[in-house]
Design a protein around this nucleic acid. Structure first.
Lengths: 155, 155
DNA sequence: AAATTTACGTCAGCCATATTGACATATCTT
DNA sequence: AAGATATGTCAATATGGCTGACGTAAATTT
């Protein structure tokens, strides 16, 4: 049993998301809003259906959170060009500001944790995290992460 | 920005806890029950207060979940020897069976992900995860994890 | 011995986020 | 024209968090 890694993952993730959680309180948002904002910012033009795949929640659950983000001007919808049924999602400047602020906090922690680890070690960490992820039915975002660099996310 | 690591952590953790989530449904339990069972099994004689520190939830939230686990015979309480106010928590054989089953699933995933990574790489992964964790006010469990091996958890 | 603090339990109510099932609308596909 | 798809929405429910208040037993301090 890898009790060590199981517990390290628990605590590492707890503190990792804790950074953002604390900041989100000031906006009256929760973790759900962060997840939506993050992926919409990173993969502009994401469809609602894509978001459901990535977050693994139901349409109804997403609905409430997404509506708030739309109403408060963090995200805008554009009707799809090819398929006018689709609502493509984009972060507004206000949304971008929030996402980058939260990602900054998390990046600080990551950079700190990566400090003093040599390039081979960093490569091993990336390989480990990738290998922890299910690859059987990859959604659009995972395809972008694992895919041969066809559709890269926003930097 | 380390968008790559941020997203890898999200997906890795999502699928990592997904293993246990699926299994827990059969027992009518949720993630909260798993967390409680895990730490009680690993650190036998844990006090209620310790558990609150580790899980970072309130007494009331823990109360509901803990009561269920006690009622259904997964955990037993023993009055503390030195301090009779304390209720020390222990997993029953039934509880042990559940915890080890869930940890087995997660260990499988970890072992698979670690496969093909050399010892130096594995060491780097451990160092990274440890460095991701806040060390300012370590609780009893974190002390055991990071501490100089005084009070080791159950293997 | 009395007062205070600590460890734990519990009651009542609230909130956020998730669920299922059903149904409506617009649009694309056949 | 019929059927499938993408999205939105209504209603009801569950889980797992939260706060505030209060009670009891046992330890500690005065």
């Amino acid at each position: 049993m890898r009790w060590d890694v199981i517990e390290l993952l628990f605590f590492a993730y707890r503190d990792f998301v804790g950074d953002a959680d604390h900041e989100l309180e000031a906006f009256g948002f929760g973790r759900a809003h962060h997840r939506v904002m993050h992926f919409v910012y990173r993969y502009p033009g994401l469809k609602v259906a894509d978001l459901l795949d990535v977050l693994r929640i139901t349409k109804q659950s997403l609905g409430r959170v997404l509506k708030q983000l739309l109403d408060e001007g963090y995200i805008i919808q554009k009707t799809g060009n090819n398929d006018r049924r689709q609502r493509l999602l984009y972060a507004t400047p206000k949304g971008e500001a929030l996402v980058t602020r939260l990602a900054g906090l998390q990046t600080d922690r990551i950079t700190r944790a990566l400090g003093g680890i040599d390039p081979a070690g960093v490569e091993a960490i990336g390989r480990f995290l990738r290998a922890m992820i299910d690859r059987d039915d990859p959604d659009k975002v995972l395809e972008a992460i694992f895919g041969a660099g066809s559709k890269k996310p926003r930097e």
